[in-house]
Measured scan of single mutants.
Amino acid sequence: FKEKSRGVLREWYAHNPYPSPREKRELAEATGLTTTQVSNWFKNRRQRDR
Rank of each mutant, 00 (worst) to 15 (best):
W41D: 07
P19D: 01
T31Q: 04
R6S: 11
Q47T: 09
R25H: 14
A28L: 01
F42T: 03
Q37R: 07
P21S: 08
R6L: 15
F42C: 00
A14Y: 08
L9A: 02
A30S: 13
R46T: 07
L33R: 08
E11N: 08
V38N: 00
N16P: 03
Y13T: 01
T36G: 12
R48I: 09
E26M: 04
E11R: 05
R22M: 15
Y18V: 10
T34E: 09
R22N: 14
W41N: 00
Y13N: 02
R22F: 15
R50D: 11
N40A: 09
S20Q: 08
R48E: 14
Y18T: 09
A28Y: 06
R46A: 08
Q37V: 07
D49Q: 12
N40D: 11
R6T: 13
N44W: 02
Y18I: 06
S20W: 01
T34P: 05
R6N: 05
P17I: 15
E29M: 06
K24A: 12
V38A: 01
T35I: 14
W41Q: 00
V38H: 02
W41C: 02
Q47P: 10
N16K: 00
A14H: 09
K4L: 12
T35W: 14
P21R: 09
E3L: 06
T35S: 09
F1W: 03
K43Q: 02
E23M: 06
K43P: 03
F42H: 01
F42N: 02
E26Y: 05
T36M: 07
T35Y: 15
S5L: 08
Y13G: 01
R25T: 15
E29S: 07
T34H: 06
N16T: 12
R46Y: 02
D49A: 04
K2W: 07
R46V: 09
S5E: 13
R25E: 15
D49S: 05
D49N: 05
T31V: 08
T34Q: 07
S39M: 04
T34I: 04
N16C: 14
R6H: 07
R45W: 04
R6W: 06
N40H: 10
E29P: 01
T36Q: 14
E29H: 02
A30V: 11
E23D: 10
N40K: 15
W41M: 01
R45Q: 11
P21Y: 06
N44L: 08
F1C: 07
V38L: 03
H15L: 13
P21C: 10
R25F: 15
G7M: 13
E11F: 05
E3A: 05
Q37W: 04
K24F: 12
S5K: 09
Y18N: 12
N16S: 08
G32P: 02
Q37H: 10
S5Y: 09
Q37M: 07
E29A: 05
R50C: 05
D49R: 03
T31M: 05
E11S: 06
S5A: 12
L27P: 02
G32H: 09
F42P: 03
K43G: 07
R6Q: 12
L33N: 02
N44A: 05
T35E: 14
E23V: 04
Y13E: 04
S5T: 15
E23L: 02
R46G: 03
P17S: 07
S39G: 12
A28E: 03
R50A: 08
H15T: 14
E26A: 06
V8Q: 08
Y13L: 04
P17H: 05
A14M: 10
R25K: 06
R45Y: 03
T34Y: 04
T35V: 11
R6D: 14
V8N: 07
S39V: 04
R22S: 15
E3S: 09
S5G: 09
N16D: 06
K43R: 11
Y13C: 04
Y18L: 12
F42D: 01
F1Q: 01
K4A: 09
E26C: 00
V8R: 06
V8G: 03
K2Q: 10
R6V: 15
V38Q: 01
S39R: 11
R50V: 05
K43H: 10
E23P: 00
E3Q: 04
S5P: 11
L33W: 11
E23A: 05
H15G: 12
G32E: 13
T31K: 04
R46P: 03
N40Y: 08
L33A: 03
E11P: 00
S39C: 09
L33T: 06
K4S: 14
N40V: 10
Y18F: 11
N40C: 08
R45T: 15
Y13K: 00
Y13P: 00
K43V: 09
K24I: 11
R10Q: 14
L27R: 01
R25S: 15
S20R: 03
L33C: 05
Y13I: 01
N16Q: 07
T34D: 05
R6E: 14
K24D: 06
K4P: 04
S39P: 01
E11C: 01
P19S: 00
T34K: 14
N44G: 08
K2T: 13
N44D: 11
Q37K: 11
E23G: 03
F42K: 02
W41F: 08
L27H: 03
E29N: 06
L33S: 05
R45I: 10
G7C: 13
